[in-house]
């Protein structure tokens, strides 16, 4: 009996939280117009959320591309198809690894920072203080961060893919002897702009939207104590990872299901 009680309470709490987060999202979207009036708020957040994620995305992209170059070469050389290494590396990155791994890194680097920042602002009464000064914290604090995350994610994913392709080229042509011309020309001939690149960009836009939403909601909804903020930060990373991977499956099925 206690199990059913627990199950019911948990389900109810989950739906209540989903409802709260939906209302929160509506307020964020309503507050975006005020960010356009104050572009400095957005620029500051683009730097903190986007530019400061530059290093981790670049280095990770380089290594992922290098590993793809190695693994791809070993596999393709069995069939004598190592000339198509460029296509394999680029397709893997642009379609999947670019958006997904960049989003996971973004959730770990920028998402957790957003949750901790908002949670601590709540714990130190900064958000309440703003409300009492008749300044809406959603408009001044939350919406600029959301927009910055939403705009940064596709750019970071594109950067990840671009650096990854270079990493694959360094290993494939520089170390393993694949022809440089073949690497690039095969890629150019076989990579479809709409089917591959645009779909990858759409994925990264969706991931940016969801990750920023989760990170900001968890911070805003955090219990205003040290433990509460710590738990909220963990939930941001875990829930973002689940959402990114789950949505990736759904989007992949929708985008590439016909192929």
């Amino acid at each position: 009996m206690e199990f059913f009680h627990y199950l019911g309470a948990t389900t109810r709490a989950s739906f209540t939280k989903l409802g709260r987060s939906s209302f929160f999202l509506i307020s964020i979207l309503a507050g975006i117009s005020s960010v356009c009036v104050r572009p400095r708020l957005l620029l500051k957040q683009l730097h903190s959320v986007g530019v400061l994620s530059f290093l981790i995305i670049t280095i990770s992209g380089l290594f992922v591309g290098m590993v793809l170059g190695l693994q791809g070469f070993y596999l393709l050389s069995r069939f004598g198809a190592e000339e198509t290494l460029g296509v394999m590396v680029a397709t893997s990155l642009v379609r999947e690894l670019g958006p997904v791994v960049a989003a996971l890194l973004f959730a770990g680097r920028a998402g957790s920072a957003l949750t901790a920042e908002i949670g601590l602002m709540k714990a130190t009464e900064q958000l309440s203080g703003m409300e009492m000064m008749a300044i809406d914290p959603i408009k001044r604090i939350i919406s600029p961060r959301f927009l910055a995350g939403f705009l940064s994610m596709p750019l970071l994913a594109a950067l990840f893919s671009a650096v990854g392709i270079i990493g694959g080229q360094v290993v494939g042509t520089g170390l393993l002897g694949v022809d440089d011309g073949a690497y690039w020309s095969q890629m150019q001939a076989n990579l479809d702009f709409r089917g591959d690149i645009i779909n990858g960009v759409i994925k990264s836009i969706v991931f940016g939207f969801v990750t920023s939403w989760i990170a900001l909601f968890e911070g805003y909804d955090a219990i205003p104590t040290a433990e509460g903020v710590s738990r909220a930060t963990t939930r941001t990373v875990v829930n973002s990872a689940f959402s990114i991977l789950g949505l990736d499956f759904i989007l992949t099925a929708l985008m590439f299901g016909d192929n």
Partner: peptide
């Protein structure tokens, strides 16, 4: 209506 919070609530 001014309010002085216990922590000060200054923007850090």
């Amino acid at each position: 209506m001014g309010m002085l919070f216990q922590s000060g609530a200054l923007l850090t």
